[in-house]
Each structure stands twice: as structure tokens, then as C-alpha cells.
Design a protein around this nucleic acid. Structure first.
Length: 350
DNA sequence: CTATTAATCCGCCAAT
DNA sequence: TAATTGGCGGATTAAT
């Protein structure tokens, strides 16, 4: 999994730096809406990505709702219709493709929609579905071999229709590679906020959450994120406590050896339990948390220098942090911070 | 960026 | 017998 803070522009690294700072491309979001779309689920996308919140420090979005067939569409319940402004060709430029659910789970997908979804994945775009929208993704085959969530009422059906999809139950959403699938209705909000945080960082996600008056999403960041709505009954106390401790002590030695000692188990058992509980390895998890911490400090503490941030986040040196930061977010810590400093863009205007 | 040294990770398997 | 544990080797990945 790779996050690119250059807003998904694959050519960003070749673009002149001052040009990039002066005019950031808007993050391009396109939502596919089917016939008999559910108004609430579609509205989630509109609320998160279709509202200009640049005044709150949120990047601009280029937001569009598209449908395969032009012309007026019915909505589920039939109380009103809707008219989209674009066809599927609009998906070609999208950094993020949303899939809105219809009244019933879609058991088929048109070749055109399927091709557009595959094209988006191969281009490096992200996909997000809400509720039974995961059926559209599954029908297109992009979920094959991946974990996914859907509304609890349809979990069995999804599993039967698409054996290649690993259905995760009792979760709000699942993030596997470039694809986020969310369970019923309101969980779509959590999924979208998670995506925002993944792409733009904690500050942006929290700003949107605050405006929408919902609680900011937590956790995540592994190769495969599963956000649970209820405490996992199979949860591992040893790992949970270890995680709490590690998050409090990111600046300290969090080698596998140290973590094993702290949780009174062998390194081998720690590795196994950790993977069972989080889906990732101890070291990879620590690295991700450290990157998050660094990201957060870059956003919120302009008084700290790179070395201080590296130390606080637990990196041995600024160059180690820089290496991982670039690898994970596609830009250096300094470049990242520049996005959050209001004057950085105007300063170098000639 | 490259090289060298260090740490991590996971299949395997014997011992609980 | 089935399930869990933890040590080992060595390919892979990270730190310096």
C-alpha cells in the first residue's frame, strides 16, 4: 500500500516544485451512482467530498457524480429523481472512485463499469464502496483475493456469490490495498474519513469530521485495516496492552526484542499474535505509527525541527525518517509540512 | 546513492 | 489427538 500526498498525480515528481506548490491539483473524486440509488449513501460522498472546506484547511476536491446511462435516474423509494452531470468517461481522471449502492445488492455489473473500475485500480486510483456497493466491486472482480465488508444483511450473499472475496463480518469498514469497503449506511462516513486521513493526514480528516459533527475515526494504517464497531471478542489482551504501551512510548526502543520482553512472551509468539490481532507485523506496525506521529507533528508543531520530530516519533535519525516518509507519502517531511503552513505557497511567488 | 552491518520475519518442527 | 509455543535458519528488509 502506498499513499501519495501529491494528491495522486503520478507525474508529481517530474513537475517543477514551485509550480506544484503554487497550484495544487484538486483531488479528483467521482462517484458512480446506479439506477434506484439509495439517497443517504450517495449523500455521504456528497457531504465528505462535494463540499468546499478549503477555508478549514481541507484540500479542494473536484467532485462529480456519474452514471452509466445519461438522463434522469430513479432513487430508492422513488420519492425523487436525480440527474447526473457526467458519464463513465469522467472516471478516467479520478483519484478516488466511489461506488454508491442501489436499492438491492447488484449481482451483475456492466462491462463498461467493470472496465472503468479495473482501469482505475491499475492507474493507482483508490476505490471506496458503501453498503451493498461492494457487490458492484465484487462483480467486477476487483475484490478477488481481497478482504471486504458489506452490510451485515448481505454478508452471506456476498460470500456465496463471490467465493474469492474474503468477507469480514462485524466491522465498520475494511481497507485492503487501494480499496475500502464499508458496511451499512453510516459506516460509509467512517470509511470516507479514514480515506481522507490516509491521503491527507490526520488534521484534514479531523477538520472534516468536525464540520460534519461526527467523531474522528481512529486507528488504521496497516496494509489491511479493519475498523471494528464492537470490541473484538477474540481480541488478545496481551497485544492490546502492548499496543497501548507502544503508542505511549513511540520515542523509545520498540524493537521486537523490547516489545516481546515487555509483553512477557517470545519474539516468535509476539510475531504470531501480532499478526493475528492486527494483520501486520510488529515492526511494520511500529513504523506506520511512527510515520503517523511524525505526520501529526509536522502538521501541528511548526516550532519543531526535523531532528526533534524524528526523535519524538522514534526514528533514529532525520534521514531514516525522511527515507520512510518519502516511501510512504510520496514527499519529504519538509514538503509535507509546507502544505500545512499557510504562507508557504505565496512566499516563493516571483 | 551505495555498501556494510543489523534486525526482522516466517516456514519448519520438536516440545509442551 | 489437536492446539499452542518458541527456537532456528536464512531470505528479506532496515539502519547506519
Amino acid at each position: 500500500m502506498r499513499t501519495d500526498c501529491s494528491f495522486g498525480d503520478p507525474c508529481a515528481s517530474t513537475i517543477d516544485r514551485t509550480h506544484r506548490r503554487r497550484r495544487l491539483p484538486a483531488y479528483d473524486v467521482a462517484v458512480i451512482v446506479p439506477q434506484d440509488a439509495r439517497p443517504f449513501e450517495l449523500s455521504i460522498f456528497c457531504e465528505v467530498f462535494g463540499v468546499d472546506r478549503t477555508a478549514d484547511g481541507v484540500p479542494p476536491f473536484d467532485f462529480a457524480v456519474v452514471s452509466e446511462e445519461p438522463g434522469p435516474l430513479r432513487t430508492a423509494g422513488g420519492a425523487f429523481g436525480l440527474q447526473t452531470s457526467h458519464g463513465l468517461e469522467r472516471l478516467a481522471s479520478a483519484d478516488l472512485v466511489g461506488v454508491a449502492p442501489g436499492a438491492t445488492p447488484a449481482c451483475t455489473v456492466s462491462p463498461a463499469v467493470s472496465a472503468a473500475l479495473w482501469e482505475a485500480v491499475e492507474r493507482g486510483a483508490r476505490l471506496v464502496s458503501v453498503c451493498s456497493g461492494s457487490f458492484t466491486l465484487a462483480a467486477a472482480g476487483v475484490l478477488d483475493g481481497r478482504s471486504a465488508a458489506t452490510h451485515w444483511m448481505h454478508e452471506d450473499l456476498l460470500e456465496q456469490l463471490y467465493p474469492a472475496v474474503r468477507v469480514v463480518r462485524d466491522v465498520l469498514f475494511v481497507h485492503d490495498g487501494p480499496i475500502v469497503t464499508s458496511a451499512g449506511t453510516a459506516a460509509g462516513i467512517d470509511a470516507c474519513l479514514h480515506l481522507l486521513r490516509d491521503v491527507f493526514g490526520t488534521t484534514v480528516a479531523n477538520a472534516v469530521a468536525r464540520r460534519m459533527v461526527v467523531s474522528p475515526a481512529r486507528s488504521g494504517g496497516q496494509a489491511q485495516v479493519v475498523e471494528s464497531s464492537v470490541p473484538d471478542p477474540d481480541g488478545d489482551d496481551r497485544i492490546d496492552q502492548l499496543i497501548d504501551w507502544a503508542l505511549e512510548n513511540l520515542h523509545d526502543d520498540l524493537s521486537v526484542e523490547a516489545m516481546a520482553r515487555h509483553s512477557y512472551q517470545s519474539q516468535r509468539s509476539l510475531a504470531r499474535r501480532f499478526r493475528a490481532a492486527t494483520g501486520t507485523t510488529p515492526h511494520a506496525w511500529v513504523l506506520e505509527q511512527r510515520l503517523r506521529r511524525a505526520q501529526q507533528l509536522l502538521e501541528q508543531r511548526p516550532d519543531l525541527h526535523a531532528r526533534e520530530i524524528a526523535t519524538a516519533a522514534g526514528f533514529g535519525s532525520p534521514s531514516t525518517m525522511r527515507q520512510h516518509f518519502s516511501n510512504r507519502f510520496g514527499c519529504s517531511p519538509t514538503e509535507y509540512r509546507a502544505r500545512f503552513v499557510p504562507h508557504a505557497e505565496s512566499l516563493d511567488a516571483s
